[in-house]
């Protein structure tokens, strides 16, 4: 084809569709981040630990715990501790460390005991963490 191409936009219909998607993603991501920055004041992370189901396996008990951060910033190196108590007496403890628990997010951890946690009082707590 020796015919000279007319000078015009050579972006096809499909490409404009993809470009529109890109624009939407960009506007949404920038808008969301800016909105988040404006509406969320920073503060310390607040870690809440909740017990989920437990499984018995080969004579030991594994308790799944849900670790939620209800605070205003991400916590790193979060240490979770569970203590099995019979009244005031502590029978055994188990601990787990989570690399990161971002704000408003949930992570899972597992604590292992040799005694049945259903028969005793299981006290769960977040020991502490560091700022990332």
């Amino acid at each position: 084809m020796a015919r000279k191409k007319p000078v015009q936009s050579r972006t096809s219909f499909w490409e404009w569709g993809a470009a529109a998607l890109g624009a939407a993603i960009l506007v949404f991501a920038i808008g969301y981040m800016a909105w988040y920055g404006l509406t969320h004041t920073s503060g310390p992370p607040v870690i809440v630990v909740e017990r989920a189901e437990s499984v018995r396996l080969d004579g030991s008990y594994v308790v799944k715990v849900l670790v939620r951060n209800k605070g205003r910033s991400t916590a790193a190196a979060v240490e979770i501790e569970g203590a099995l108590k019979d009244g005031e007496e502590s029978l055994e403890t188990s601990a787990a460390t989570l690399d990161y628990v971002p704000e408003n997010s949930e992570r899972e951890a597992y604590l292992q005991f040799s005694r049945d946690p259903d028969k005793f009082d299981l006290k769960l707590r977040a020991v502490g963490g560091s700022a990332p």
Binding site: E15, W16, A19, G22, A23, I25, L26
Partner: peptide, 14 residues
């Protein structure tokens, strides 16, 4: 067209 290319690249990357 350059802008369309750039936005399409962002869509693809996302």
């Amino acid at each position: 067209d350059d802008l369309a290319d750039a936005l399409m690249a962002i869509a693809v990357a996302a």
